[in-house]
Computed example of a mutant assay.
Amino acid sequence: MNNNNIWNNLKETVDANGNNVLHLAAKVSKYKPWKIPGASMQMQWEMKWYQYVKKSVPEHLIYQANQDDDTPEETFNESHKGLVQDSSEWLKSTSESCSVVAALIAGVSFATSSQVPGGNNDETGKPTLEGYPAFDVFAMTSLVSLCFSITALVMFLSILTSRNEPKDFRRVAQFPLYFDLLKAILKELPQPSYKGDDL
């Protein structure tokens, strides 16, 4: 029997508890198959594995309940509660420290980018050193450092305001709260809390 036949048989099989292959992919393995340090990276790989299996199975298995009346998504959320909590605590403590540093760098970058080395020409108002390669390099690097430091600050703040849900670990950087706030401001009616299959 080749690998395709094995996979096709596995997709349609359920265990004694009514779990299909997606239920099993949704559970945290006690063998720790991902050799990754840190709870947040572990959570991200768990999410990637679940998404990979989910794309490979027929659609009806995504909504199939087991004997406990849990869908694969509900199994994933329940199974990963502890890992989500550990990941969130680590990310928030790291983000608090890094956001202070990012804010300091952003402040210094803003101060240096707003200052003109050599001053301005009194008659024309243009920078005295305009046209010199060193001046152009200084202007570009100070602008780049300001952009990167502000981007880093916004990313750290988005982690601090995260809702701590499994789906938030699908990508490295997300701004779910800001998008939801913007939607809430623009919509006339409140959105339902259940949005379907989010994982």
Rank of each mutant, 00 (worst) to 15 (best):
I36P: 01
E123L: 12
T75G: 06
S29Q: 10
Q174H: 10
L199N: 03
S114I: 13
P176W: 02
M41C: 01
V84P: 01
A184I: 01
A39Y: 02
E73D: 05
H23I: 06
E123T: 14
D68A: 12
S29M: 05
N17E: 12
M140Q: 12
N120I: 15
S29T: 07
H60T: 12
Q191E: 15
I62Y: 03
P127N: 07
D198F: 01
D180C: 03
V14F: 15
S113T: 11
S142G: 00
N19H: 07
L160N: 06
F138M: 03
E74V: 06
D15R: 01
M155W: 10
A39E: 03
V84I: 07
F148T: 04
E123S: 11
I159M: 04
M140V: 13
L181F: 10
S88I: 03
P133Q: 01
N77K: 13
A102C: 13
A106Q: 05
S109L: 03
K126M: 15
G82A: 11
K35M: 10
G131A: 12
V154P: 02
K35A: 13
G38I: 04
L146D: 01
Y31H: 11
L129R: 06
Q85Y: 04
E73C: 02
L153K: 02
Q42S: 14
V116N: 06
A134N: 04
P117N: 02
L143M: 09
F175M: 11
L146P: 04
F148N: 04
A152R: 08
L199Y: 00
L146G: 06
S162W: 09
A152W: 13
Y50E: 05
N120Y: 15
R170I: 14
S97L: 13
Q191T: 14
L10E: 05
S114A: 15
V14E: 10
N8V: 05
Q85D: 12
S99N: 08
E130V: 07
I36N: 08
F110A: 12
L181E: 04
T124H: 02
E165A: 01
E89W: 04
L182K: 12
H23N: 01
H23M: 05
N121K: 00
M1W: 08
A65D: 05
D180Y: 07
G196A: 10
S56E: 12
L160Q: 12
V137R: 10
K195F: 07
I36F: 11
N19M: 04
N4P: 00
Q115A: 15
D168S: 08
L146E: 07
P190T: 05
H23P: 09
A152Q: 08
S40H: 13
G107Q: 10
T128H: 03
N19D: 14
K27I: 11
S99D: 07
P37R: 09
R163A: 13
Q44V: 00
P166Y: 02
L177R: 14
N20M: 01
P190W: 00
Q44P: 00
P117F: 02
T151W: 15
I150S: 02
K81T: 11
Y178F: 13
S95C: 10
S149E: 00
I150D: 02
S113R: 06
Y194S: 04
T112A: 09
D69R: 08
Q115L: 15
C147V: 13
Y178K: 07
D136M: 13
S93N: 11
G118R: 00
L24A: 05
W49F: 15
